[in-house]
Design a protein around this nucleic acid. Structure first.
Lengths: 339, 339
DNA sequence: TTGTACGCGTTATCAT
DNA sequence: ATGATAACGCGTACAA
């Protein structure tokens, strides 16, 4: 592999001068600069980050730790957001997936430590409370899409499920809906609680009694292998005598099932019943006709902003508050009608 | 940062002895070993990979280059597969996303070069022909989910869209279907051609005339911003006098739209019409009732096997054939009925 | 079994 | 404006 010395020899200068050119330091004569640059190109010299790291103790790398990835299809956008920030700011990214195994997580922290990573983005694929298992490794860390347990202190960033769900509910109310069905997410998900709470609060704030509501559990059980009651629940809600005019679903996947249930009953959307989801799973929300009104989870921005926050943390800035939140934008499409 | 010397000092031995312990070399006295290990633990020493790399010129890292990620939700499973292999084999993974920009791709190759990455996994998010833009950087590379242009030579691995589509078609024929509708993927996708060709071949092999077929284009235009005709096409196919008994769709997203179209027409699945997709987008295929019969794209295995192939390439093995293919497994669920 | 000397590719310091 | 020298953390070769 061609080194700085080879370049120096070819250009007839010392190593240090080449180093100056490579690092765009001042005090290099224009002629020298040209000769060195020519040598670099002709030799195809690429600086060795490892050697640089040994001296400077800064690797200019971030590490991403994820838990699962497969069940929630668009959460990968978080990683995309991180990478885009990293790319725009001269950082390279290590990626490690723990598959939810604590042992692998501990190994990962050590591996990252051995690569002298500058900081870690700890990303969960669904919104939840977490305690990173870093052993005695201490690297500046930002939690993404999750929050630390009660006694721990971390910089973190989450989607605002509460605001998203409140906006969605208010929107339904504005469209004149009063009898509303609600199909709940798996209660183990943090988002499930936040969304449901926001829904109830918005209903109360509108002066409606909860008696107008039809709340059903759509899923429960362990993440990744849950029991799914959505189709049955939606069918049941929609075959009642006083049918709700709208159904709000824990997420788009569930909205899809409610959608199928409604169509199977011969109902049309949104004429007979309006449906809203959450997350903006585009494969689903765009494929439905009419397309699905939903609240978009800001996955990409979560990633992008978290990298930004990590950088600020590394620069010694005191992030206050440590905890940030990103809004879930209401995406108005065709699946909701006015009453 | 604590170095090998600090450990040596605390344990009262030389650097080299610590090095022996860390690398599990023989010829260390049991007592010495214990003292050194104790020192390592108490100091929290973690070897510096950069320093190691400088001597050995092997970084034990792979780099992953991806193009897009957002549109095809489950393609992230490729990356998961790579990571699982890497984790099980003591390798760490760099990740870089080009967003389809050639400039960024060239930068990425240089960055990887500067980190002295051992090998690159070049991953495309949809199945296609590609020419990596590596400039004058030369790192052992495996193409994943794509194949090289006609004049280039690369080790590669792809899903067998042809086999998957043929199996799916044969399955429909076995169930007695003779009048079959087909809604095509965007022709710009390699998978579109392979799947359609396999469909036609299977139909011909069964001695059926293409006159029994109703082929429609479901999508066209640039990837990521295509025009979508699926709902209209499906509706049109299903309102013909001689309605097909089955519709085969380019992928599950399109199958979902055909599904919605059928239900909207008051048809039931699979009694009135059978539907099959492709890809196994689980968010969709499991949410439909009845669930969707499809062919699963082996994303995870593509990733896992590609890492394995890269390792063999690095070990100097002569991969023959350079090109590998992984089957698309038929996933039989409820959306197809017998005639 | 253990230690010493040196070199890897780079940057920092100081001198010229 | 440029260069000489040392140092970073570790492994290799060799010596003890």
């Amino acid at each position: 592999m061609v080194s700085i010395k080879d370049v120096a020899r070819l250009a007839g200068v010392s190593d240090k001068t080449v180093s100056r050119v490579v690092n765009k330091e001042p005090n290099v004569h224009a002629d020298t600069l040209q000769r060195v640059e020519a040598a670099i190109v002709s030799l195809g010299y690429v600086p060795n980050m490892a050697a640089r790291l040994i001296r400077s103790n800064r690797s200019r790398t971030f590490g991403i730790i994820t838990d699962f990835i497969s069940t929630t299809p668009y959460s990968g956008d978080i990683v995309r957001g991180i990478q885009d920030w990293a790319n725009a700011n001269g950082r390279t990214v290590f990626l490690a997936n723990t598959n939810g195994s604590l042992e692998r997580e501990r190994e990962t922290w050590r591996t990252f430590q051995s690569h002298r990573i500058d900081g870690v983005l700890y990303v969960t694929m669904y919104h939840r409370v977490i305690d990173p298992e870093s052993g005695d490794v201490h690297i500046p860390t930002v939690l993404v899409n999750c929050r630390p347990g009660p006694n721990r202190s971390y910089v973190s960033i989450e989607p605002d499920d509460f605001q998203g769900s409140r906006d969605l509910t208010k929107y339904l109310l504005e469209q004149g809906h009063r009898r509303i069905g609600y199909i709940r997410l798996n209660p183990r998900l943090l988002g499930a609680q936040l969304r449901y709470e926001a829904f109830r609060e918005a209903i109360r704030d509108a002066g409606l009694s909860e008696q107008n509501l039809n709340v059903r559990l759509g899923m429960d059980g362990q993440i990744g292998e849950e029991n799914n009651y959505v189709f049955a629940a939606a069918t049941e809600i929609l075959t009642q005598p006083e049918r709700p005019t709208a159904i709000m679903c824990g997420n788009d996947e569930m909205a899809l099932q409610a959608y199928i249930a409604a169509l199977s009953l011969g109902l049309s959307i949104p004429t007979d019943v309006s449906i809203v989801g959450f997350d903006d799973f585009r494969t689903v929300s765009h494929a439905l006709k009419p397309e699905l009104t939903t609240a978009a989870l800001p996955y990409y921005d979560l990633g992008y902003c978290s990298a930004e926050r990590l950088e600020r943390l590394l620069e010694g800035e005191d992030l206050d508050p440590k905890h940030a939140t990103l809004p879930c934008r209401l995406v108005e499409r065709g699946s909701v009608g006015a009453i």
